[in-house]
Design a protein around this nucleic acid. Sequence first.
DNA 1: TATTTACATTAACGTTGCGTAAAGGTTTAT
DNA 2: ATAAACCTTTACGCAACGTTAATGTAAATA
Lengths: 255, 255
Amino acid sequence: MEYTVHQLAKLAGVTGRTLRYYDEIGILKPARINSSGYRIYGQAEVDKLQQILFYRELEVDLETIKKMVNSPSFDDVKALKEHREKLLAKRKQLDLLIANVDKTLAAKEGRMTMSDKEKFEGFKQKLIDENEKKYGKEIRAKYGDETVDKSNQKLKQMTEEQYAQVKKLEQEVLDVLNEAFLTGDPASELAQQAADLHRQWLSYFWDSYTKEAHAGVAQMYVDDERFTAYYDKTHPGAAKFLRDAILLYTGMKND
Amino acid sequence: MEYTVHQLAKLAGVTGRTLRYYDEIGILKPARINSSGYRIYGQAEVDKLQQILFYRELEVDLETIKKMVNSPSFDDVKALKEHREKLLAKRKQLDLLIANVDKTLAAKEGRMTMSDKEKFEGFKQKLIDENEKKYGKEIRAKYGDETVDKSNQKLKQMTEEQYAQVKKLEQEVLDVLNEAFLTGDPASELAQQAADLHRQWLSYFWDSYTKEAHAGVAQMYVDDERFTAYYDKTHPGAAKFLRDAILLYTGMKND
DNA sequence: TATTTACATTAACGTTGCGTAAAGGTTTAT
DNA sequence: ATAAACCTTTACGCAACGTTAATGTAAATA
């Protein structure tokens, strides 16, 4: 059997370029060249190519393969053993790398959680301040300083476990909001679901839920760029969209 | 603090070329360029370089690092996780490769052992034939056909364990012979040690050792190219050298 | 038979992360 | 003043091909 480049290439699962390259670097020369300058390969070349590809599979470099298949006196077992050592060293290095990447990720996620926590803390403080400003006098007059201070204190002392649940809800709000945003309609079912999830989320902070306060927080998302940025992360305009959904949800705004 | 390329390079443990390259691909630009066209780096660049080198340690490609350190909005945790996946895949691939290399080596050594065994078998047969030719009539006349045939049979039935010991001795003969060859003197201590090891080796095949037979085998090493090739593998001429050493050892040739 | 289609050829650049000259300008030390 | 020690840009080299580009040849079809 005789083959042209492409025929042999297909037979062996490589490209013609590869065969020309192998010819160029002298690792596999065609049996002969016909009158038109075409490379013609025979059975011997097919066999040799198989060998070459076998060693290539093992990621031996072509220079070494060349010696292996072209000089019968070459100690291929020794070469393979050395190659094996190189592979082992590479794996050791890889293990180190992976461990380091893991360490870096752990540190980064630790920091992220940290900064999330800080944001969370800031949010809680902001809620307290807002409540204080809007309803402070009224409520303090009604229940007395002590009661209000204790409530605020409780808010600040949310447990880690609650925090985790809150984080989960927070993510759900985001997910549903982003999906709802694509509908473009704050009155859509998904948008209203997002608003409801947000109510559940808020309930973690408030003893008593009021539509007014909920709507107030929603408005804050638009007014305070810290929160706007948070909700707009995936879709710019999502914060406003959420506010509108909540305004409809709370019935603070019709149609 | 301000640094020129080489100063920063030394500080960070890279070469100037690296910094120029990082400038070229826009991953780390100098703070400014002075009137002579020199790159001047400041503290911010030092810090950034540290980051770059850190990620480089993890084998992240420069294109990705560029995004990581230049755009604050880039999700580096995600990138690292993807990188981690790539590393894991690479390790898996490496494990496969190593297993395949092992398999190849096992097969090759299996074949080698096989061919060694064949050679060994051939050698035993040859010894029998030689003995038969040289001493056959004499010995058969002396002890009878039965005795001789049984002896030959025993030779053929060497156990695997004996075989292993013989292989070990064989290697020792080779090692000492090759070292002795460098002295150039078949009468040297090393050469005589090689001859002695060879006698021990031969004793595995023979019930009774005779100087004459030993010298005869030595001569065979020179006459039969199969064995000549075996001993000449490391140093051409070693077979003849061994013969001479054995001739001196056996006293079959003086001075 | 003329033309299209499917091959073949060589030449040359692109890939990654720099190393390594080469050819020349600048600063510092003697 | 001159040499030593910097700096600059330009550009090839590395491994193993992929990918055009420009051009020539063989086989199939109109």
